[in-house]
Design a protein around this nucleic acid. Structure first.
Lengths: 235, 235, 235, 235
DNA sequence: AATGAATGAGAATTCATTCAT
DNA sequence: AATGAATGAATTCTCATTCAT
């Protein structure tokens, strides 16, 4: 069990091995149920060494969160085409996001499931990153509105809500896309590619945003246009 | 600390008090970090009584999940207008959902954050309920397509993806709507009402669905219509 | 589970039901692992009633020991033919003993296995009864020696040792005889009857005693007679 | 209380210390009443170390049973003179047995009293060892019969019964020999030596066996010879 | 005569963490 | 750079026992 023993490994590498082991173990067991014993064993080192390098379980978890969220942000950032139109930026960012979460499901699980459910030190760390993402998306929506020449149609709070909804939808799809439905011989019912998932998102999101920016709103009786929002929804 | 001591309470009532305490504590601390000691204290009883009535921490957590998910489903079900059009059903269901999650944030936190991150017995229980909700939404989208007279335009898998995205968006907004409380003096920056949140969702979702059903798809160059999807997305 | 509920039973009878339940449960589980809960359930009453009648677990166990050892002593006493020769008394006593232990294996298990292995209050109670039995057997051997007209041949301590050995052998055979070896179709390999077991004991014991009383002793080189014992055994 | 603290002891030695402490404590208190806390304290270490090395109370008890029964078997085996006549083998084996049980009364108490009264995992372990001893004694009796040239006189089941009686008698004497200590000022009423106890057994047993092998049986009217057994015992 | 409701005290077990080498 | 030895502090769970009716 655990990695092959190789003595005298430089610190930088050992630390990464430990973080790898920690990501795996936190994802498999959850923060609380993951024991330092198991992490050390998976990393192929003794427990005191883990403490020597990472100080404590909390610090280790924080280091994991930091590394994984930086990796995720880096992946998305790298994927986004800087000068493109807002929709293309969203599209490329989503592709980067889905590709990364599919490639590192354990890292994603730690960020999305573990970090958010365990007390103050950690939840905040992810919340900050998530807030940045939401802010980025918010900007994108604003930019899109400007591009479409209809800045006034979307209230600030409305945009924030939309960004939150969009991010939540993406998170949900990330989980869904990673669940390998075990039916039929392999080949049938495969993982949807990051491209497909991103397309689903774009189709879901962009069309609606377009209409919103044109001033249309949903109302109990059907879509209506041009009126102010408060009138549209009467409950 | 804990509730006011009231001796000799019938079992049925005590059990509810214990479940209340458990919901609170699990939401505050997370499953693993919540100790039976604290739950008992919050419930205002001794630990042995908790074990006598609820058997074990696992059983207690299961009972909590069951009660809370049944309550949530009941609230949404009660909110939906049975014979209405698909969009109205979605609208009323969302209102019920946001109203319930706003009223019982701890119950929602346990279902959404704790139950899903802690091993097989629990994750499955919530997964089942969530799958039912997704199925319901999937049906709604199908019905809407039929109402709009364009059944063929949406592939089955596409519908499933949309339903997942929609549910994820709603979950994200539920969390968002509940968090906004702690800024400024009370009164300023209030919870958005369930109605407002549901409206955000409907505006976000329904318009987009409408376009999708009309055969429009998003493509890197902008919205395009009528063509097959594979042509639309070239990446 | 437990006996059929019948309310309003006179105390004397209820107590016996409780003792029955206790014997069963102590034999099945052992003293420590037997819970008052289970005993009460097997007895078909509520726990407080057990405490009302029997005071405590210790008292309950003592009551069980007392009842069972009195029953055993009574059975053996009743079996012994008062005026008979020593060997006939031993023979009839053994038959009574094996018959009783076979009929009440749980009672015997409590006396022989549980009572002796659990701390001072209980071990002493059984020890006293056992000592009485040993004393009785010692007398019997003495009487036999007298009958045989060779009182001087057996040292007092030697007689005591023989009595202990005899009692131990009988206890061992009681356990052995009660183990139902589950081989073959029923009928094959049955319980030996109390008579058979007693016969085995008598054959084992009486012949040897006869020789001892005639002054013969075993010595490393074979049986030798007439000499004093210290000379016989040289190691 | 507990042993003198000696830090940083190699595992193999610590384990033996723990087993020593466990034997002592199980013998004193019984399996259930012996707490891991007390065992750890007696061993002079902390509880977690006991768990680290021995895993659980059950495993600890099993380890104790294994060590003690192996030691007992080894002592008896070492004592038996391999090529000697059956009676000499029995004699030397008994001396070894009584010497060992007298030297390690706690180990013997655990095997004889505790292990047999506590559920399946343990009872079986001792039962197996005891069955081996009984089998050995059975062989010895058979060999003795052959030496005496009267193989046909003893039925198989009869031999088994005798072996059980013999073992039971020895067990009883082992307990008896160890208990006699606590009366009067030390010096008076000493432990009988293993040699004496073994002699009592041999005198008790061997003479009787001799007669049995000569075809004599006990019968209600006195010893009778040569007839079949069924006729001898009429009850 | 009998019980549903309730608890104080202690049990086994596990963990994050450190010391000495 | 690395580890075998060791522990303080919780945590889950159980049990004998009592109270109020």
């Amino acid at each position: 069990m655990g990695a092959v023993k190789s003595k005298r490994v430089p610190r930088a590498i050992r630390e990464q091995q430990m973080l790898d082991a920690a990501v795996l173990t936190f994802a498999r067991r959850g923060y609380a149920a993951a024991s330092m014993d198991e992490i050390a064993e998976v990393a192929g080192v003794s427990k005191p060494l883990v403490y020597l390098y990472l100080n404590s379980k909390e610090d280790l978890f924080s280091a994991v969160i930091r590394r994984e969220s930086e990796a995720l942000v880096a992946a998305v950032t790298a994927a986004v085409e800087p000068g493109a139109t807002a929709d293309r930026q969203l599209w490329s960012g989503l592709r980067g996001f889905f590709a990364h979460t599919a490639e590192y499901p354990d890292g994603w699980a730690v960020l999305h499931q573990q970090a958010r459910t365990h007390g103050e030190p950690f939840a905040r760390e992810v919340a900050v990153v998530r807030a940045e993402v939401v802010a980025f998306v918010t900007e994108l929506i604003g930019a899109a509105a400007k591009e479409a020449g209809c800045a006034g149609e979307l209230a600030e709070r409305e945009v924030a809500g939309l960004a939150h909804a969009l991010v939540g939808a993406a998170e949900s799809l990330a989980g869904w896309a990673n669940v390998r439905t075990d039916e039929g011989p392999s080949g049938e019912r495969e993982h949807p590619s990051a491209k497909d998932t991103a397309a689903t998102m774009m189709n879901f999101v962009w069309a609606g945003l377009g209409r919103l920016m044109e001033g249309e709103r949903w109302a109990p009786g059907g879509l209506i246009g041009q009126q102010g929002r408060s009138a549209a929804v009467r409950g």
